[in-house]
Design a protein around this nucleic acid. Sequence first.
DNA 1: CATTATTGGTTTAATCATGCAACCATTCTT
DNA 2: AAGAATGGTTGCATGATTAAACCAATAATG
Lengths: 150, 150
Amino acid sequence: MVARKSLKGDYCPSARSLDVIGDWWSLLIVRDAFDGLRRFSEFQKSLGIAKNILTDRLRTLVASGILELVPMSDSSTRMEYRLTAMGKDLFPVMVALRQFGERHLFAPAEEHSLLVDRASGQPVQLDIRARDGRSIGPDETVIVKVPDGK
Amino acid sequence: MVARKSLKGDYCPSARSLDVIGDWWSLLIVRDAFDGLRRFSEFQKSLGIAKNILTDRLRTLVASGILELVPMSDSSTRMEYRLTAMGKDLFPVMVALRQFGERHLFAPAEEHSLLVDRASGQPVQLDIRARDGRSIGPDETVIVKVPDGK
DNA sequence: CATTATTGGTTTAATCATGCAACCATTCTT
DNA sequence: AAGAATGGTTGCATGATTAAACCAATAATG
Protein backbone atom coordinates (compact mmCIF):
# COMPACT_ATOMS: atom_id res chain seq x y z
CA MET A 1 0.00 0.00 0.00
CA VAL A 2 2.84 2.40 0.51
CA ALA A 3 2.29 4.74 3.44
CA ARG A 4 -1.38 5.49 3.43
CA LYS A 5 -1.86 9.21 3.30
CA SER A 6 -2.91 10.77 6.55
CA LEU A 7 -5.69 13.31 6.49
CA LYS A 8 -5.01 14.63 9.96
CA GLY A 9 -4.02 17.99 8.60
CA ASP A 10 -6.93 18.37 6.24
CA TYR A 11 -9.20 21.27 7.03
CA CYS A 12 -12.24 19.24 6.03
CA PRO A 13 -13.92 17.63 9.03
CA SER A 14 -15.20 14.72 6.96
CA ALA A 15 -11.69 13.92 5.88
CA ARG A 16 -10.42 13.93 9.43
CA SER A 17 -13.24 11.63 10.46
CA LEU A 18 -12.35 9.25 7.70
CA ASP A 19 -8.79 9.37 8.85
CA VAL A 20 -9.92 7.95 12.18
CA ILE A 21 -12.73 5.56 11.28
CA GLY A 22 -12.47 5.34 7.52
CA ASP A 23 -10.72 2.05 7.27
CA TRP A 24 -12.44 -1.12 6.39
CA TRP A 25 -12.94 -2.64 9.83
CA SER A 26 -13.21 0.24 12.26
CA LEU A 27 -16.81 1.15 11.62
CA LEU A 28 -17.86 -2.48 11.72
CA ILE A 29 -16.27 -2.77 15.13
CA VAL A 30 -18.05 0.40 16.21
CA ARG A 31 -21.32 -0.98 14.89
CA ASP A 32 -20.85 -4.10 16.98
CA ALA A 33 -19.99 -1.94 19.96
CA PHE A 34 -23.31 -0.13 19.51
CA ASP A 35 -24.92 -3.56 19.44
CA GLY A 36 -23.48 -4.25 22.86
CA LEU A 37 -20.36 -6.25 22.08
CA ARG A 38 -17.50 -5.63 24.49
CA ARG A 39 -14.98 -8.45 24.43
CA PHE A 40 -12.16 -9.22 22.06
CA SER A 41 -13.56 -12.64 21.35
CA GLU A 42 -17.04 -11.29 20.73
CA PHE A 43 -15.80 -8.95 18.05
CA GLN A 44 -13.66 -11.67 16.61
CA LYS A 45 -16.52 -14.12 16.39
CA SER A 46 -18.97 -11.57 15.06
CA LEU A 47 -16.76 -10.15 12.36
CA GLY A 48 -14.59 -13.08 11.38
CA ILE A 49 -11.68 -10.67 11.38
CA ALA A 50 -8.12 -11.90 11.72
CA LYS A 51 -7.02 -11.58 15.30
CA ASN A 52 -3.93 -9.55 14.64
CA ILE A 53 -5.95 -7.04 12.66
CA LEU A 54 -8.55 -6.88 15.39
CA THR A 55 -5.79 -6.24 17.90
CA ASP A 56 -4.50 -3.42 15.77
CA ARG A 57 -7.91 -1.85 15.13
CA LEU A 58 -8.97 -1.98 18.75
CA ARG A 59 -5.73 -0.32 19.76
CA THR A 60 -6.22 2.38 17.17
CA LEU A 61 -9.80 2.98 18.24
CA VAL A 62 -8.69 3.23 21.86
CA ALA A 63 -5.87 5.58 20.91
CA SER A 64 -8.36 7.72 18.97
CA GLY A 65 -10.62 7.98 21.98
CA ILE A 66 -13.53 6.10 20.43
CA LEU A 67 -13.22 3.03 22.60
CA GLU A 68 -11.84 2.67 26.08
CA LEU A 69 -10.42 -0.39 27.76
CA VAL A 70 -11.97 -0.79 31.19
CA PRO A 71 -11.97 -3.59 33.76
CA MET A 72 -15.03 -5.77 33.39
CA SER A 73 -17.84 -4.98 35.76
CA ASP A 74 -18.14 -8.51 37.11
CA SER A 75 -15.21 -8.37 39.50
CA SER A 76 -12.81 -9.97 37.08
CA THR A 77 -9.35 -9.00 36.01
CA ARG A 78 -10.49 -9.14 32.42
CA MET A 79 -10.89 -6.03 30.40
CA GLU A 80 -13.53 -4.98 27.96
CA TYR A 81 -13.79 -2.41 25.20
CA ARG A 82 -16.48 0.18 25.57
CA LEU A 83 -17.63 3.13 23.54
CA THR A 84 -16.58 6.42 25.04
CA ALA A 85 -18.79 9.50 24.86
CA MET A 86 -16.88 10.42 21.73
CA GLY A 87 -17.54 6.96 20.34
CA LYS A 88 -21.23 7.32 20.98
CA ASP A 89 -21.16 10.49 18.93
CA LEU A 90 -20.64 8.24 15.95
CA PHE A 91 -24.26 7.21 16.31
CA PRO A 92 -25.51 9.52 13.56
CA VAL A 93 -22.89 8.12 11.22
CA MET A 94 -24.10 4.60 11.89
CA VAL A 95 -27.72 5.59 11.47
CA ALA A 96 -26.97 7.37 8.20
CA LEU A 97 -25.09 4.37 6.86
CA ARG A 98 -27.87 2.09 7.95
CA GLN A 99 -30.55 4.14 6.27
CA PHE A 100 -28.61 4.32 3.06
CA GLY A 101 -28.24 0.56 3.10
CA GLU A 102 -31.89 -0.01 3.86
CA ARG A 103 -32.93 2.24 1.02
CA HIS A 104 -30.60 1.08 -1.70
CA LEU A 105 -28.91 -2.16 -0.91
CA PHE A 106 -31.76 -4.53 -0.22
CA ALA A 107 -34.31 -6.11 -2.49
CA PRO A 108 -37.81 -4.83 -1.75
CA ALA A 109 -38.92 -7.82 0.26
CA GLU A 110 -35.53 -8.87 1.56
CA GLU A 111 -35.02 -9.56 5.22
CA HIS A 112 -32.98 -6.99 7.12
CA SER A 113 -32.53 -5.53 10.55
CA LEU A 114 -34.14 -2.26 11.50
CA LEU A 115 -33.31 0.40 14.05
CA VAL A 116 -36.32 1.40 16.11
CA ASP A 117 -37.15 3.65 19.01
CA ARG A 118 -37.11 1.45 22.10
CA ALA A 119 -40.14 3.19 23.57
CA SER A 120 -42.48 3.20 20.61
CA GLY A 121 -41.07 0.44 18.46
CA GLN A 122 -41.23 2.83 15.53
CA PRO A 123 -38.31 3.25 13.13
CA VAL A 124 -36.05 6.19 13.83
CA GLN A 125 -35.86 9.15 11.50
CA LEU A 126 -32.84 11.10 10.49
CA ASP A 127 -33.18 14.58 9.13
CA ILE A 128 -30.92 17.34 8.12
CA ARG A 129 -32.46 20.69 8.72
CA ALA A 130 -31.77 24.36 8.63
CA ARG A 131 -32.08 26.41 11.80
CA ASP A 132 -35.65 27.27 10.98
CA GLY A 133 -36.62 23.61 10.84
CA ARG A 134 -36.83 23.18 7.06
CA SER A 135 -35.35 19.89 6.03
CA ILE A 136 -32.71 20.46 3.39
CA GLY A 137 -30.74 18.45 0.85
CA PRO A 138 -27.27 18.68 -0.67
CA ASP A 139 -28.25 21.36 -3.18
CA GLU A 140 -29.48 23.75 -0.52
CA THR A 141 -26.18 23.80 1.29
CA VAL A 142 -22.78 25.36 0.80
CA ILE A 143 -19.45 24.84 2.44
CA VAL A 144 -17.85 27.91 3.90
CA LYS A 145 -14.51 28.37 5.52
CA VAL A 146 -14.46 29.35 9.14
CA PRO A 147 -11.31 31.32 9.77
CA ASP A 148 -9.09 30.50 12.69
CA GLY A 149 -10.73 31.73 15.86
CA LYS A 150 -7.83 34.10 16.49
CA MET B 1 -4.18 -8.44 1.77
CA VAL B 2 -5.87 -11.60 0.76
CA ALA B 3 -9.31 -11.05 -0.71
CA ARG B 4 -11.09 -8.52 1.40
CA LYS B 5 -14.20 -10.04 2.82
CA SER B 6 -17.43 -9.05 1.12
CA LEU B 7 -20.42 -8.05 3.21
CA LYS B 8 -22.94 -8.17 0.40
CA GLY B 9 -24.83 -10.98 2.05
CA ASP B 10 -24.94 -9.46 5.50
CA TYR B 11 -28.41 -8.73 6.78
CA CYS B 12 -27.19 -5.52 8.45
CA PRO B 13 -27.76 -2.46 6.26
CA SER B 14 -24.74 -0.67 7.72
CA ALA B 15 -22.51 -3.53 6.74
CA ARG B 16 -23.79 -3.50 3.19
CA SER B 17 -23.24 0.22 2.97
CA LEU B 18 -19.69 -0.22 4.15
CA ASP B 19 -19.25 -2.89 1.54
CA VAL B 20 -20.00 -0.29 -1.11
CA ILE B 21 -18.44 2.88 0.25
CA GLY B 22 -16.40 1.64 3.20
CA ASP B 23 -13.03 1.64 1.57
CA TRP B 24 -10.50 4.28 2.14
CA TRP B 25 -10.99 6.43 -0.93
CA SER B 26 -14.61 6.05 -1.97
CA LEU B 27 -16.14 8.41 0.55
CA LEU B 28 -13.47 11.01 -0.13
CA ILE B 29 -14.37 10.86 -3.80
CA VAL B 30 -18.04 11.19 -2.90
CA ARG B 31 -17.25 14.15 -0.68
CA ASP B 32 -15.50 15.85 -3.57
CA ALA B 33 -18.43 15.03 -5.80
CA PHE B 34 -20.72 16.80 -3.32
CA ASP B 35 -18.30 19.71 -3.51
CA GLY B 36 -18.93 19.88 -7.23
CA LEU B 37 -15.96 18.02 -8.67
CA ARG B 38 -16.76 16.09 -11.83
CA ARG B 39 -13.64 15.30 -13.80
CA PHE B 40 -11.06 12.59 -13.42
CA SER B 41 -8.31 15.14 -13.18
CA GLU B 42 -10.16 17.21 -10.61
CA PHE B 43 -10.48 14.26 -8.28
CA GLN B 44 -6.91 13.32 -8.89
CA LYS B 45 -5.63 16.76 -8.10
CA SER B 46 -7.84 17.19 -5.08
CA LEU B 47 -7.08 13.86 -3.46
CA GLY B 48 -3.55 13.13 -4.59
CA ILE B 49 -4.70 9.57 -5.23
CA ALA B 50 -2.76 7.29 -7.54
CA LYS B 51 -4.38 7.37 -10.93
CA ASN B 52 -4.86 3.65 -11.28
CA ILE B 53 -6.62 3.52 -7.93
CA LEU B 54 -8.79 6.46 -8.92
CA THR B 55 -9.68 4.67 -12.13
CA ASP B 56 -10.64 1.61 -10.13
CA ARG B 57 -12.67 3.48 -7.51
CA LEU B 58 -14.55 5.55 -10.04
CA ARG B 59 -15.45 2.41 -11.92
CA THR B 60 -16.61 0.74 -8.73
CA LEU B 61 -18.70 3.76 -7.73
CA VAL B 62 -20.28 3.82 -11.17
CA ALA B 63 -20.95 0.09 -11.00
CA SER B 64 -22.54 0.57 -7.59
CA GLY B 65 -24.85 3.24 -8.93
CA ILE B 66 -23.42 6.05 -6.84
CA LEU B 67 -21.81 7.91 -9.70
CA GLU B 68 -22.72 7.99 -13.35
CA LEU B 69 -20.56 8.77 -16.32
CA VAL B 70 -22.30 11.30 -18.55
CA PRO B 71 -21.19 13.42 -21.50
CA MET B 72 -20.13 16.86 -20.39
CA SER B 73 -22.73 19.54 -20.76
CA ASP B 74 -20.52 21.86 -22.81
CA SER B 75 -20.88 20.08 -26.12
CA SER B 76 -17.69 18.14 -25.77
CA THR B 77 -16.95 14.50 -26.26
CA ARG B 78 -15.49 14.39 -22.78
CA MET B 79 -17.25 12.63 -19.97
CA GLU B 80 -17.76 13.57 -16.38
CA TYR B 81 -18.67 11.74 -13.21
CA ARG B 82 -21.81 12.86 -11.47
CA LEU B 83 -23.64 11.80 -8.36
CA THR B 84 -26.77 9.84 -9.12
CA ALA B 85 -29.90 10.17 -7.01
CA MET B 86 -28.61 7.21 -5.04
CA GLY B 87 -25.29 8.94 -4.60
CA LYS B 88 -27.00 12.06 -3.29
CA ASP B 89 -28.65 9.87 -0.69
CA LEU B 90 -25.21 9.61 0.89
CA PHE B 91 -25.61 13.22 1.96
CA PRO B 92 -26.63 12.32 5.53
CA VAL B 93 -23.57 10.11 5.84
CA MET B 94 -21.34 12.96 4.79
CA VAL B 95 -23.05 15.38 7.13
CA ALA B 96 -22.76 12.95 10.03
CA LEU B 97 -19.07 12.39 9.36
CA ARG B 98 -18.53 16.10 9.07
CA GLN B 99 -20.25 16.86 12.34
CA PHE B 100 -18.30 14.19 14.15
CA GLY B 101 -15.09 15.65 12.82
CA GLU B 102 -16.07 19.19 13.72
CA ARG B 103 -16.89 18.15 17.24
CA HIS B 104 -13.96 15.95 18.05
CA LEU B 105 -11.14 16.31 15.63
CA PHE B 106 -10.36 20.00 15.67
CA ALA B 107 -8.76 22.19 18.26
CA PRO B 108 -11.20 24.73 19.67
CA ALA B 109 -9.99 27.63 17.60
CA GLU B 110 -8.72 25.68 14.64
CA GLU B 111 -9.73 26.67 11.16
CA HIS B 112 -12.15 24.36 9.41
CA SER B 113 -14.83 24.33 6.78
CA LEU B 114 -18.48 24.42 7.74
CA LEU B 115 -21.63 23.25 6.03
CA VAL B 116 -24.32 25.90 6.02
CA ASP B 117 -27.80 26.40 4.67
CA ARG B 118 -27.44 28.33 1.44
CA ALA B 119 -30.47 30.46 2.14
CA SER B 120 -29.78 31.52 5.70
CA GLY B 121 -26.06 31.00 6.01
CA GLN B 122 -26.71 29.13 9.24
CA PRO B 123 -25.06 25.79 9.99
CA VAL B 124 -27.15 22.74 9.23
CA GLN B 125 -28.46 20.51 11.97
CA LEU B 126 -28.70 16.76 11.97
CA ASP B 127 -31.04 15.02 14.30
CA ILE B 128 -32.19 11.53 14.92
CA ARG B 129 -35.71 11.41 16.13
CA ALA B 130 -38.52 9.08 16.97
CA ARG B 131 -41.79 9.33 15.09
CA ASP B 132 -43.20 11.65 17.70
CA GLY B 133 -40.39 14.13 17.18
CA ARG B 134 -38.31 13.42 20.29
CA SER B 135 -34.66 13.37 19.48
CA ILE B 136 -33.08 10.11 20.60
CA GLY B 137 -29.64 8.68 21.19
CA PRO B 138 -28.08 5.23 20.90
CA ASP B 139 -29.41 4.05 24.26
CA GLU B 140 -33.02 4.72 23.32
CA THR B 141 -32.92 2.49 20.29
CA VAL B 142 -32.96 -1.21 19.58
CA ILE B 143 -32.31 -3.22 16.50
CA VAL B 144 -35.05 -5.56 15.45
CA LYS B 145 -35.20 -8.06 12.66
CA VAL B 146 -37.69 -7.46 9.91
CA PRO B 147 -38.69 -10.80 8.50
CA ASP B 148 -38.74 -11.37 4.79
CA GLY B 149 -41.71 -9.55 3.31
CA LYS B 150 -43.01 -12.87 1.98
C1' DC C 1 -1.31 24.58 -38.88
C1' DA C 2 2.26 22.82 -35.87
C1' DT C 3 3.36 22.41 -31.19
C1' DT C 4 2.46 21.73 -26.61
C1' DA C 5 -0.42 20.75 -22.64
C1' DT C 6 -4.21 18.34 -20.67
C1' DT C 7 -7.13 14.46 -20.08
C1' DG C 8 -7.96 9.95 -18.85
C1' DG C 9 -6.18 6.50 -18.50
C1' DT C 10 -2.62 1.58 -18.57
C1' DT C 11 1.46 -0.86 -17.11
C1' DT C 12 5.26 -2.05 -14.12
C1' DA C 13 7.85 -2.62 -10.01
C1' DA C 14 8.36 -2.01 -5.19
C1' DT C 15 6.21 -1.77 -0.85
C1' DC C 16 2.75 -2.08 2.56
C1' DA C 17 -1.40 -4.28 4.66
C1' DT C 18 -4.14 -8.19 5.38
C1' DG C 19 -5.53 -12.92 6.23
C1' DC C 20 -4.37 -17.35 7.79
C1' DA C 21 -2.30 -20.56 10.62
C1' DA C 22 0.51 -21.65 14.38
C1' DC C 23 1.86 -20.67 18.79
C1' DC C 24 1.70 -18.97 23.73
C1' DA C 25 0.83 -17.29 28.56
C1' DT C 26 -2.88 -16.45 31.51
C1' DT C 27 -7.40 -17.15 33.32
C1' DC C 28 -11.82 -19.70 33.78
C1' DT C 29 -14.46 -23.88 34.11
C1' DT C 30 -15.18 -28.55 35.50
C1' DA D 1 -5.61 -30.92 37.85
C1' DA D 2 -7.08 -30.95 33.02
C1' DG D 3 -9.05 -28.77 29.43
C1' DA D 4 -11.05 -24.84 27.23
C1' DA D 5 -11.49 -20.00 26.45
C1' DT D 6 -9.28 -15.41 26.33
C1' DG D 7 -6.37 -12.18 24.35
C1' DG D 8 -3.10 -11.85 22.19
C1' DT D 9 2.03 -12.42 19.10
C1' DT D 10 4.72 -14.05 15.19
C1' DG D 11 5.74 -15.56 10.36
C1' DC D 12 4.57 -16.20 5.80
C1' DA D 13 2.04 -15.85 1.37
C1' DT D 14 -0.69 -12.96 -1.18
C1' DG D 15 -3.33 -9.12 -2.37
C1' DA D 16 -3.81 -4.00 -2.44
C1' DT D 17 -1.72 0.44 -3.04
C1' DT D 18 1.55 3.61 -4.59
C1' DA D 19 4.77 6.23 -7.55
C1' DA D 20 6.54 6.57 -11.84
C1' DA D 21 6.79 6.00 -16.59
C1' DC D 22 4.30 5.72 -20.60
C1' DC D 23 0.53 6.55 -24.11
C1' DA D 24 -3.35 7.84 -27.38
C1' DA D 25 -6.75 11.24 -28.05
C1' DT D 26 -8.32 15.75 -27.52
C1' DA D 27 -7.86 20.86 -26.44
C1' DA D 28 -5.39 24.98 -26.26
C1' DT D 29 -1.73 28.10 -27.97
C1' DG D 30 1.10 30.66 -31.05
